[in-house]
């Protein structure tokens, strides 16, 4: 499968396919369905300093070719994740990308310092774009200065490369990407778009009122944002995500300049989607006569 192997800072990926954070929990449930060592990497669910209970229900709602979620970063806290969830994942030959979240800079640095020392964590994904928590999250990701300051602080304490997950809920994503791109080792994009669905009585269906829109509906938005960022920053590693469910989607993301891709919502539609995509991509690269998947990287703007 060397035609699919990808190397980016901290990460030696067997293939460019990985589950996106928040859609895979910590891998335990999926390990009963297939061998997690097949995956390029795993982006685990966001870790915060203290355990978080998350938001009231309903937390999810389907929308046309997509879904809204407002889970609210429910997780058992970084210490528990290191002792149990990451420990469990050690038996698989797969690099872990740990998603780090918080409400203040100190929360982020505390989590980043601890979790980046776990032996199987090969990179961090800095979550400055969660739209579903009252404090922190997206507020760091919509302002260039605060995004840069947070990235600097985390970069200082992290033992592994730091990727920053960008929010699409901004006026100018290239500006933010260029700001954090000066410091970060790579970018992951995009997080969910803030959205709303109403119930039959005309009230917001999700208890949090708004939720993050994901799924095939957001793919055109993500493609365009990556297309813009990649041309402004030709060298920065980018892991792309947003509505990927087929091998053609994967090719589109590589075509706009991604190094690798993450699959989110599609894991709910079909829990076997990641291994299915890996096999399909392997076959497609052969059919297309490519010597490596990156032969088509960036072809959208070349």
């Amino acid at each position: 499968m060397s035609k699919l192997a990808v190397n980016i800072p901290g990460l030696s990926l067997k293939n460019p396919i990985m589950p996106a954070s928040g859609c895979f929990s910590f891998g335990q449930e999926f390990s009963e369905l297939y061998d997690l060592s097949r995956l390029g990497a795993i982006m685990i669910k966001a870790a915060t300093h203290q355990p978080r209970l998350g938001n009231p229900t309903p937390r999810v709602a389907e929308t046309a070719s997509g879904m809204l979620n407002a889970i609210g970063l429910q997780n058992p806290g970084v210490d528990h994740i290191i002792e149990h969830e990451l420990k469990f994942l050690e038996k698989f030959d797969v690099p872990i990308i740990a998603n780090v979240a918080g409400t203040a800079i100190e929360d982020y640095t505390e989590v980043a310092e601890k979790i980046s020392q776990a032996p199987n964590v090969h990179a961090l994904e800095l979550n400055i774009s969660c739209p579903n928590v009252k404090e922190g999250g997206i507020q760091f990701g919509t302002n260039v200065e605060s995004a840069v300051r947070l990235t600097e602080s985390v970069k200082r304490v992290s033992k592994v490369p730091v990727y920053v997950k960008l929010s699409p809920n901004v006026t100018n994503i290239v500006e933010i990407a260029q700001g954090v791109g000066e410091i970060a080792d790579g970018l992951t994009m995009i997080n969910t778009l803030v959205g709303m669905r109403l119930d039959k009585n005309g009230k917001p269906l999700i208890a949090n009122k708004t939720g993050g829109l994901s799924g095939p509906a957001i793919k055109p938005v993500a493609l365009n944002m990556i297309y813009q960022v990649r041309q402004a920053m030709p060298d920065i590693p980018i892991i792309g995500m947003g509505g990927i469910s087929t091998v053609d989607d994967v090719l589109d993301y590589i075509s706009v300049g991604c190094d690798a891709v993450a699959v989110g919502t599609a894991n709910f539609t079909d829990p076997y989607v990641c291994p299915t995509l890996i096999d399909a991509l392997d076959a497609r690269v052969a059919t297309m006569g490519l010597s490596h998947i990156h032969d088509i990287k960036g072809r959208a703007y070349q």
Partner: peptide, 28 residues
């Protein structure tokens, strides 16, 4: 019953509170 996402315990959508303050997942 509750609105579910994954149905296998990974998405944390269909939770219900327990007496100890934590959440149980309805699906799993």
């Amino acid at each position: 019953e509750e609105r579910m996402g994954c149905g296998i315990g990974v998405c944390y959508a269909c939770v219900v509170p327990k007496p100890d303050g934590s959440y149980a997942k309805i699906c799993s």
